[in-house]
Simulated scan of single mutants.
Amino acid sequence: MSPFRGVVLKLLSVLLFIIMAALIKATAARIPAGEAVFFRSFFAMPVIVGWLMMRHDLSTGFRAKSPMGHVLRGIAGVASMGTGFAALGLLPLPEVTAIGYVSPLLTVLLAAALLGERLRAFRMTAVFIGLVGVMVILWPRLTLADVDRAAAIGVTLILVSSVLRALAQIQIRRLVASEQTSAIVFYFSLTATVLSLLTLPFGWVMPTAPEAVMLVAAGLIGGLAQILLTAAYRYSEAALLAPFEYASMIFALLIGYVVFEEVPTGTMLIGAVIVIAAGVLIIWRERQLGLRRGRAKAALTPQG
Rank of each mutant, 00 (worst) to 15 (best):
L159F: 09
V127W: 06
A217Q: 10
G203C: 06
F62I: 06
S161N: 14
L93T: 04
V71R: 01
S59D: 15
I283Y: 14
G34V: 10
A166I: 06
V185Q: 04
K297P: 02
I255Y: 01
L93S: 00
A212M: 15
I255V: 10
E95K: 08
R293S: 07
L142D: 01
R234M: 13
F260T: 02
L72P: 11
V163Q: 09
F188Q: 07
I274C: 00
E117N: 03
V275L: 03
L15S: 07
A166R: 02
S236L: 10
T83L: 12
T143P: 06
L114I: 12
T125G: 14
A79R: 03
V216W: 02
G304E: 12
F202G: 02
L190N: 04
Y187A: 00
F85A: 09
M268N: 04
I19W: 09
L200S: 11
L254E: 03
A152R: 12
V185T: 07
G133E: 01
R123E: 14
D148S: 07
V273Y: 05
V176F: 10
P104Q: 05
L91S: 01
Y235C: 09
A26Y: 04
S13Q: 11
V132L: 14
V7A: 10
L281R: 09
F260V: 02
L15K: 01
L52P: 09
A212G: 14
A217R: 09
V163G: 10
A22G: 08
A177L: 15
G304A: 05
Y235A: 11
L241S: 02
T199L: 08
S41W: 11
R234V: 02
R63I: 03
I153A: 11
L228D: 07
A152D: 12
A111Y: 01
P92E: 04
Y246F: 15
E117K: 10
V108F: 01
R165C: 10
T181Y: 04
L254C: 04
G116Q: 09
L144D: 13
D57Q: 12
G50W: 11
L228I: 10
A87M: 03
A64M: 13
P32Q: 02
V155M: 03
V127G: 01
V213L: 12
E35H: 05
A231D: 15
Y257L: 14
E117L: 03
G222K: 05
I158T: 09
L9S: 12
M68V: 15
R63H: 05
M81L: 14
L224T: 15
R287T: 06
A272G: 10
R174N: 08
